[in-house]
């Protein structure tokens, strides 16, 4: 089993399924049953009232998935990331060359997603945010999600290099 691959898979799931990481979780017998005191935001970028997640965008509390906002971003984020996750599910426990190939594919997909987020988002920023960014403007709007994606990419690289082959 490739442990780094498993951690990469967990981080992919966190980015894809969650809006925040709950800390200080407490349980109550009302609705919602589970609540949390602290919420670590996991959006990739924050620009004014817009929060850009992997799964979509939140503007003033209104949720939109990427296909509603920008189809190309939807293809990169909403298709490639689940694909990377699925390949990791099959790859991390296979201790053979197929497993290594799958881990390699996971790394490449994550690299493409990260590159798109820092190159593609500024290109389509007018369509997405209504403001045209220059290339380096995006770096002043990074949020925790971007760093989680970066850590995920590094772990995917380590998982690819250290994949056990029997």
């Amino acid at each position: 089993m490739n442990k780094y691959g498993l951690i990469s898979l967990i981080l992919t799931c966190v980015l894809f399924f969650l809006q925040f990481i709950p800390l200080g979780v407490y349980f109550q017998f009302e609705n919602p049953f589970v609540n949390s005191h602290v919420r670590i935001p996991i959006q990739l970028f924050t620009f004014q009232d817009n929060k850009l997640f992997i799964w979509g965008m939140v503007t003033n509390g209104v949720f939109q998935n990427w296909f509603e906002v920008n189809i190309l971003t939807g293809i990169f984020f909403l298709v490639l990331l689940p694909l990377a996750g699925i390949l990791t599910i099959f790859g991390f426990w296979k201790e053979n060359k197929t497993g290594k190939k799958l881990m390699n594919a996971n790394f490449i997909f994550l690299l493409v997603i990260l590159l798109y987020s820092i190159i593609g988002i500024p290109i389509y920023s007018e369509e997405i945010l209504g403001v045209q960014f220059s290339y380096f403007d995006i770096f002043s709007h990074l949020n925790y999600g971007f760093f989680i994606l970066l850590i995920n990419l590094i772990l995917a690289l380590i998982a690819n290099i250290k994949h056990p082959i029997q």
Binding site: L23, G24, H37, V38, I40, P41, Y144
Partner: peptide, 18 residues
Amino acid sequence: FYFWGYNINGGTIITSLI
């Protein structure tokens, strides 16, 4: 005081994690 932050008077939550 918790590992993730602290709770004042059972209401206000302060965390320096974020």
